[in-house]
Each structure stands twice: as structure tokens, then as C-alpha cells.
Design a binder for these strands. Sequence first.
DNA 1: GTGTTTGCAAAGTGTTTGCAATTTA
DNA 2: TAAATTGCAAACACTTTGCAAACAC
Lengths: 143, 143
Amino acid sequence: MMTIPDTRPYARALDRLKAVGLRPTRQRLALAKLLFDGADRHVSAEQLHAEAVAAEMRVSLATVYNTLHQFTAVGLLREVVVESGRAYFDTNTTNHHHFYHAEDGKLVDIDHSRLSVAALPEPPAGTAIDRVDVIIRVRGHQS
Amino acid sequence: MMTIPDTRPYARALDRLKAVGLRPTRQRLALAKLLFDGADRHVSAEQLHAEAVAAEMRVSLATVYNTLHQFTAVGLLREVVVESGRAYFDTNTTNHHHFYHAEDGKLVDIDHSRLSVAALPEPPAGTAIDRVDVIIRVRGHQS
DNA sequence: GTGTTTGCAAAGTGTTTGCAATTTA
DNA sequence: TAAATTGCAAACACTTTGCAAACAC
């Protein structure tokens, strides 16, 4: 089955923004396009900003931060914490987990169906489970 | 069964340092005492520094950072990443997991035996699993 | 027009580093 | 005395904020 290429380059990004009720500003459209047109991805603010600059989209780093947080707040992105000192955002907002390769800062999704966390213990008194994150830290093999 | 109180307040800390081959300086002894004399705990550098200052132990924040990393390097501590922007260190170095309560920054251990991660998927080509971290994020109930 | 969003530069947070002075073995 | 360790202050990396100008509706 083939996909017909979209002739209006920002159409998809526009739809996404409309769907969540965020004003489709030039900057938000540009970032949404980078993030959502294509396969799922994991980005840091600096990375995304660099890409936007490389693609001649004029966006400030402050706006990239704001936008990533707004997108996260409305459920378009999910924040992944793997390293203190750098925030990653994941375009895959379904229930899933991650491999993390610290040496090169790369994340790889693990579908929820491929890993099961059995028998969750009772949370501390007065609290309820919000979400379960599994991070499998990996390293380059040595044989 | 009762424990006889230790009359030499730094004896345990001293033994720990000797065991891993770190010079027992005044600062390291003080921090080891705060960390290891008592139940397992989770601390950030700022927290530990504040405690040391409160206990009249003269230690600079830079030394607290250095010491936490040295202790981690020799296996006396384990770093727990739950929040970008703040590093936590855990005195429990056994294989276990965590509840994390973001609102008050508190961690609670989950013994390895109380939670099982079944059927780990194959790591990406060229990598091997280093360690598996499960973080269960919790929030104060609303009924 | 009115309220929202942006970009800049400044401020903030947590952490690391260079190096002279101090301490340990 | 030689080598390791400390503390300070400066530097750092990443992130957030205040506010005037620009933009969307």
C-alpha cells in the first residue's frame, strides 16, 4: 500500500495543532512538521533547535523549549527522563518503554507488548500510580 | 536482639572507606557517616551538603559532589535518575527499583523480589544490557 | 483591536573544573 | 616529601523568565 505524498507541506502539522487547540503560528507549524512528519522520534530541545535552524526555519531556542512543553502538556509529546541534565521528548505517546545508550545519547522504543512488568507493588500510602517507566540501559558490547 | 551502640562514632565509616581503598579524610568520613550510619537513603548533593553543614561538619559543596561520584564509582552508592536537573544517590546498591513522588521529590525503594520485569527484549544490535531501571511515578491520591 | 506568542538577553539551577593551599600516608 | 584531596570561585550546560515587539484571530 502506498501513501500519496502531501502536496501541502504543513497540512499535517496544521491538523495536529488544530486538534489540540494551539494557534498554528509559523514556529509551532515548523516544529510540528519536524517532529511529526515521519517516524517516531526522540529529541532534546537543542537538537530540535539545530534542526530547525538547519532547515532555515527561524525559531529561537526559548520558543523551542516553550513549544516542547506546550506539546507535552496537550499530549502531543511525552517527556522521557534518562539523564539528569538533559530532557528528551518522545513523539510516541503510547504506553511503551526505552532502551537507552548513554555513550551516544540514543533512545530506542520498546513496545509495551514486548515487555511486561508483572505484579506492581502497592504504592506508598496516600499515593496512586501515575505511570511506570522502564529504562533498559545498554552499552556497546565487548566480546 | 539488640545492637551495642558504637562508641567510636566514625568506626563504621572508616571501615567502609578502607574496604574500597579511599583515603579516610575528614570530609569523606563525615559524609560516609551521614550516608551509611542508619537506614538506606536517597540524597541529592545539596541535601547532603545541607545536612553536613547542619551537623557542623565543614565540607564544601564541590567536595560533596566529588565524594558522591567517587562513592558511586567504587560501588558504595548508586545513582538514580528520576528528574532531569537533579541527581539522586541511593545507599542501597542492590538490584531494586523505585517509586518516585515528583511533588515532594521523594524516592521509595521497591525490592527486586516485589516486582518482576519479564521477558526482556533483545537489546539493539551491537549492545548489551547494562542495567534495568523501573521507576513508578506516583501522585497524591484524589478520591 | 485584543489577547496570544515570540525572541532576546538576563537570570536561574544544578553541576563541574582549575588551581593554590592543605592534608594524608 | 610526594601524592592525593580540598575549597574557592569561575565556568558550564541546560532551562526558564520578563518584557517589548510581532502576530493571529
